[in-house]
Every structure is written in C-alpha cells, then in structure tokens.
Design a protein around this nucleic acid. Structure first.
Length: 309
DNA sequence: CTCCAGGGATGAT
DNA sequence: ATCATCCATGGA
C-alpha cells in the first residue's frame, strides 16, 4: 500500500503513519505524532529525544527486518549461476514483517491478479473500511480489521473489484474476528502445522499459505510457487525436461534452496520480473521492488535508522 | 481487440 | 495424486 512520493514512501506500519526514504545506506524516517497533537510528522523536535520516537524506531526496524543479516542469508544460498545473478541484482532486498491479518487478507485478494491491481484493491479496502489517519501531507488509511470486513456484505466487498475473492475474504474474516482462527496464537506452531491451519482458511491454498508464512510469520524457509517462480524453476533448473510434476517442483524448492529458501525465492522472483522481463526496452527503474516487498540497502544492523526533525 | 495475471475449490480421471 | 474447469476483473 506504500505510496511513492517526495523521493520516498508514505505508508502505515500497523497504526503508525510514517514516511521513509533511503539515503545511501541509511533509512530515514519521519513519524507522525498522535492525532491529538498539533505538530505533525515530528516537526519542531528531534525524534531521538522523544520516547514515542524510540518506540517508532523499534517498530520500523522490526517491520523492515533491518536485523536480518543479509550477508549470512546470501551465503546460505545454493551456488549456481541463476542464484548468483539474482542475489547480486537484488542486493539489499529484505523480507518484511507484515501484520498477520493485513498480510493474509491481501494475499487472499491476490489470486490471478496483477500486482498493480492488488495494490488498487488494497487501497480501496483501506479507504472504504479502514480508519483515516490524517498527516501533514496526505490522509493515510489503516487496513480494515477482520471484524470490519466480516460485517461488510459480500456485494459491498465486490464493489472493491474483488470478484469471486469477496466470498473467501469475508469467510476468513469471520473466522479471524470470531477468534476461531487466532493468527497470533498460531505463531507458536511449527511450519507444517502452521501451513495446515492457514491452508484450512477459505481462499488460502499452498501458494498463499507460504506467502503468509514468509511475510507475516517470519518462516524464511517458506517458498511460494507462483506462475513467475514456476517459470524460473522449469526454465533454469529443469531445462527442456518433460514431465516435471508440480510435486517435484515443490520438493525441489523445499530442499535445494536451504534454510532461507523464502529469501532465495524473492531474489529469483524480483530478478525474473525486472531484469529478465522485456529485455528489449532499457528499464531505468528496474530496481524498484514491488509493493509486497521493500527494498532497503542498509546492510549493517547497527546503522539502519536515522530520524529527521 | 486479445491475452493473462504473485490461485483456489471442486469434481473427474 | 494429477488434470480440467470455472471463478471476476482490469492492466498491458
């Protein structure tokens, strides 16, 4: 849902409105004050001295996963030409820690949709059913709670261009809001059990379950297989071979790429979608990450964040 | 205009 | 288990 403007991105981390901008190896952030305050985006005081700003620092650092040791993660990748090229191309790309319900809901909406359209659906859901968070520069909207989605009619959800996904989104929202599906409690389960529980939710199959495990539950081994990554696997790792079943691809992806397979998947995915797509046209903005991932070039965990007054 | 998109549920081999 | 079909919608 992040909006690119002013050389950075406006967005909400849960309830926290922030503006983030990469400056060299640092991630500069501005944080909006509480709604009751008159000042906005920290104007007039140094954020470092404000207790809430320190909380915000931890929140932002956690959301963008600045604690991930990218050098160690990349060293765990298998050594092959495709993986090497992807890791080199995507240097700095991180897998974020997204709020669980927000992640689950948006990926339920993602099936057979282009990324641009998923962004549009996500924004529409926020504007119609979320809460406005006015800031100095623009009004941001929180992602609607599971309950607010659950009490919305299917017809009204379809009005957000959800199509057949509306029924699944609403059914899952009901399970989450009722407590029958307690997404926070599921954090304790091991991968297999978590995948099974997620997969039992309406509209959640193997691909979406793996996405939620990867982006919301920090299961860095989870390897979502979508149409793009399936192309990469078949063309690069099973060249000109017939009868490669989906199950064969699955077990290959779960074993070959190792303990951080999800990171390997994201690097392969981003590389394939930007560097390899449309090789005829020179892509000047080819290194921009999609909305579902974030691209931060901060490699050193201790020097990640700087506040701006 | 056509093609296809960060799939899932269901039913038939 | 693997495959076929349908499901809405709009970007490219």
């Amino acid at each position: 849902h992040w909006v690119a403007d002013d050389g950075g991105f406006y967005g909400l981390i849960g309830e926290l409105p922030v503006f983030v901008r990469q400056e060299g190896r640092k991630l500069c952030v501005k944080v909006a004050p509480p709604a009751c305050s008159r000042t906005s985006f920290g104007a007039g005081r140094r954020g470092e001295d404000h207790p809430r700003a320190l909380d915000a620092t931890a929140t932002i650092r956690n959301y963008f996963a600045l604690d991930h040791q990218l050098d160690e993660i990349c060293r765990s990748f298998p050594k092959d030409s495709v993986m090497d090229a992807s890791a080199d191309y995507c240097r700095g790309l991180r897998i974020i820690r997204q709020p669980k319900w927000e992640c689950l809901a948006t990926f339920i909406c993602s099936s057979m949709k282009q990324v641009a359209h998923i962004r549009q659906i996500s924004q529409t859901l926020r504007k119609r059913f979320g809460e406005p968070r006015p800031t100095e520069h623009r009004v941001l909207y929180t992602f609607p709670t599971a309950n607010s989605v659950a009490v919305t009619s299917e017809k009204e959800l379809r009005g957000c261009a959800l199509g057949y996904r509306a029924k699944n989104l609403r059914a899952t929202a009901k399970l989450v809001s009722s407590g029958e599906a307690n997404l926070e409690d599921w954090s304790r389960w091991p991968d297999a059990k978590l995948r099974a529980y997620l997969g039992a939710l309406p509209g959640v199959g193997p691909k979406v379950a793996n996405c939620v495990m990867l982006f919301a539950y920090q299961r860095l081994r989870a390897f979502p297989i979508d149409v793009w990554i399936e192309r990469v696997l078949r063309q690069q790792y099973f060249p000109s071979r017939k009868k490669v079943t989906a199950q064969r691809l699955r077990e290959f992806s779960e074993t070959y790429f190792g303990e951080h397979g999800g990171y390997a998947q994201q690097y392969l995915f981003h590389h394939a979608r930007t560097a390899l797509r449309k090789p005829t046209t020179s892509r000047t903005s080819g290194r921009q990450a999609s909305s579902l991932t974030c691209y931060i070039s901060c490699q050193c965990p201790g020097a990640g964040i700087m506040f701006r007054a």
